[in-house]
Amino acid sequence: MLKRIITIFVLALFVMSVVSCGQAKKESGLKIAMVTDVGGINDQSFNQSAWEGLKKSEEDFGIAVSYLESTQDADYAPNMETLLDAGNDVIWGIGFKMGDTIKEKALANPDQKYAIIDYAYGDETPVNVVGVVFKEQEPSFLVGYIAGKMTKTNKVGFVGGMKFPLIEKFEYGFKAGVKLANPDAEIFAQYADSFTDAAKGKAIANQMYGKDADIVYHAAGGVGDGVIEAAKEQDKYAIGVDRDQNSLAPEHVITSAMKRVDNAIYNVADLLVKDEFPGGTTVVYGLKEGGVGIAPTSDKLVPAEILEEVEELKAKIISGEIVVPSTPDAYTEWIK
């Protein structure tokens, strides 16, 4: 036994030193990699969706794809550099938390292409960066409209992850939709201060259901799992977010506000293949661009006539007739 251990040890040292001297093999074709935010690659939400988008581009365009997970905010910069050294054509930062890091790295490495989800640099976008943002308020508005029409108690709820402008887009879009459908409806809104604490989501949702709300919409990542769980137990309705979450509770998740991070990533890969990488710009994905929408499974629980009205609203948003509010101020203005 001992002899074996020693032999393995010596062998390991030897081989390791040999391998260390070698070079990583060069791969032909394009390479795209992404850095996840602290949610990790299996977050049931936008990191996972982003990776699905990359995987799809791997299949369709033969691009070599990889990812690097971050466990702390301090990981973003070193992870970006690791991917830089790995020789990628485009490096994605998934999530607005990487906004500052991407910009800093992009300025320091002008020859490297970067892209980021949920961050817009506006006029200051470096020429080698693409910012991708979504109009989250638009699908939120549509599901809000559905909630406003379907509520029997005239009370609905919203559970947010953490209170900052990105999540507020969900909140105010939703509220506006509810108010349009049902001006008398009361809307409870609460933030969980977490994107992971499912127990807390459940507690908040239970509280809202206890106050007679019958539909709760969440924009809270993993917290939302608890919201849906509560809906199941109380036999009330919930509305999912980011991906089609109907499968989590087929009888209780009436619809989901989808944010197609995967489509956005896939599109940028497509543009890269065509050598049309939109560097220096911000790409906005709304209903018009097919970057957001409501879940295809909505017709299971939502009456057809409401869905028809939703289609009309959708057309109005696309044509610009309705501009959905995304901030507290815009919402106050809109309510008038």
Partner: peptide, 19 residues
């Protein structure tokens, strides 16, 4: 030291960072 040397700010945290 993490603040003065590396991050220069604090961020909203949803879960323990694990240090």
């Amino acid at each position: 030291l993490q603040v003065v040397g590396v991050s220069h700010k604090v961020t909203l945290i949803a879960a323990m960072e694990g240090y």
